[in-house]
């Protein structure tokens, strides 16, 4: 039998409020995205997405989204080599609902399951899309804020948030200001920030390569309360501007420290917050000064999606990795450095 020349995987992601399903094709030299669909659960202004509502959203849309993903990819279940799904980290109920659906596909089609770490999915997809070979990775989203570099078969965490994620800080501040959650609270903060002019003083919390955002959020919330009470001379736009300038300066600083530490001049930004243009711009200026460059992807890949799960899962699968169904439980806590990265040198 001739060696296998192509592999197809379907990836199912639902660790937060996005349900994503994608189909990917690998050949020894190329990676092709056959389909990459997403359905987002948007909660009303002033509210966040609750686990049970989000899980219900994923359950009700999974079948139709999976059907459309296959149809768009022009692939039948028989062509699929493995079913990849997010094992963690993320919110429990949404993760579980997608894991159940992935197990069902696996049993229905008689294809092996591959559990994927969500963070590793982001990193691998970012590397694939941008061609960044061995960058320092800043992974920033609603649930995670980490500075990561690869060494000896693992993605090592050099710095991370000590409390909430940066995206969570932005999302919750959007709730305070009662900004719309459509398409995403962070996007709407970014638009308001473009009209802000005044830098209001907020705490700046960097400790070595780690940082903290909860105090900044508390402080911004207090300023917003002053403003709503008519006791302040700054606007919501100014607050959004100040919040962005402060938290992004922190992220760029810890990234720069990690780059100096490992001696790298490339930086890759992944995760939902990575689609913020101001963050990309600041990161670009920093990297240029260090004689390097920044790699970023657009919203199709930055924001949670199924294709990254399919891609990272398929890389592991091609090294012989599968997840037996009795071990296919998911977990809210799944550190990036727990994954043995067999597919890299």
């Amino acid at each position: 039998m001739a060696p296998k020349e192509s592999w197809i995987a379907i990836g199912c992601e639902g660790s937060a409020n996005k349900l994503g399903i994608g189909v990917i094709l690998h050949t020894p030299t190329r990676t092709t995205i056959l389909s990459n669909l997403r359905h987002t659960f948007v909660s009303p202004p002033g509210t966040g997405f609750l686990p049970k509502d989000t899980a219900a959203h994923h359950r009700s849309h999974f079948v139709s989204l999976a059907g459309r993903a296959l149809a768009e990819a022009n692939v039948s279940p028989a062509d699929v080599d493995c079913v990849c799904f997010t094992q963690g980290p993320g919110m429990g109920a949404p993760l579980t609902s997608v894991a159940v659906a992935a197990r069902a596909l696996s049993l229905l089609w008689g294809k092996p399951l591959v559990g994927v770490n969500h963070c590793v999915g982001h990193i691998e997809m970012g590397r694939e899309i941008t061609g960044a070979d061995n960058p320092v990775v800043l992974y920033v989203s609603g649930g995670n804020s980490q500075v990561i570099a690869y060494a000896e078969q693992r993605y090592r965490i050099f710095g991370e948030t000590l409390d909430i994620a940066v995206g969570n800080c932005l999302d919750r501040f959007a709730r305070t200001l009662r900004i719309s959650n459509d398409p995403a609270p962070g996007y709407n903060i970014e638009q308001l920030a473009k009209k802000g002019t005044r830098l209001v003083e907020l705490p700046y919390a960097v400790k070595g390569m780690d940082c903290s955002f909860s105090g900044i959020l508390a402080s911004a919330d207090a300023l917003a309360a002053q403003m709503f009470a008519g006791k302040a001379d700054f606007t919501p736009e100014d607050l959004c501007f100040s919040l962005q300038e402060t938290v992004y300066a922190m992220l760029v600083e810890i990234t720069e420290r990690a780059m100096a530490h490992v001696g790298s001049s490339q930086v890759l930004v992944v995760g939902g917050v990575g689609s913020n243009e101001r963050l990309q711009q600041m990161m670009g200026e920093m990297a240029r000064e260090r004689g390097g460059s920044v790699f970023a992807t657009d919203e199709r890949f930055c924001i949670d999606n199924g294709i990254m799960i399919a891609h990272a899962g398929l890389r592991a699968f091609r090294c012989g990795y599968t997840t037996p169904i009795e071990e296919s439980t998911c977990t809210q806590r799944f550190r990036t450095d727990e994954v043995f990265v067999e597919w890299r040198d």
Partner: peptide, 13 residues
């Protein structure tokens, strides 16, 4: 000075 930081924030830090 770090040119990517807001000048007021940069001075303060």
């Amino acid at each position: 000075p770090k040119p990517w930081r807001h000048p007021i924030l940069d001075q303060r830090l």
